[in-house]
């Protein structure tokens, strides 16, 4: 059964005009958020994104931005307690 998490929250953005179609984002995404279409990357389902940041880091053209963070409640609670930086 497929896992589904909270919708419409991800910070993932793809600037299609910057994309040169190298395909790294398609390759690295563990949730298959990207596909190649007509030689450029496109987002299939944004809500599957877990904001791991693999696509953005591996994009040589800075076409992808995402606010990277660990999806872990304890890290977020600890981060709140010690001044914003989330860490386990």
């Amino acid at each position: 059964m497929k896992h589904k998490y909270i919708r419409n929250v991800t910070t993932l953005e793809l600037k299609k005009d910057k994309c040169k179609g190298c395909g790294f984002c398609v390759e690295v995404c563990p949730h298959r958020v990207f596909v190649m279409e007509n030689g450029r990357a496109d987002i299939v389902d944004k809500n599957r994104c877990m904001e791991c940041g693999a696509c953005a880091l591996n994009c040589p053209f800075e076409a992808i931005t995402v606010e990277v963070g660990v999806g872990c409640a304890i890290a977020i609670i600890n981060g709140n307690n010690n001044g914003g930086k989330s860490c386990c």
């Binding site: 998490y5 929250v9 949730h31 660990v70 999806g71 872990c72 409640a73 304890i74 977020i76």
Partner: peptide, 24 residues
Amino acid sequence: SLNFTGSTTYTSFSGVKKETKLTL
């Protein structure tokens, strides 16, 4: 249950932040 978000393979930072701030 909220704590288990840290063990999963699919929860996003923004999502966990949202539900943690709302629920805690």
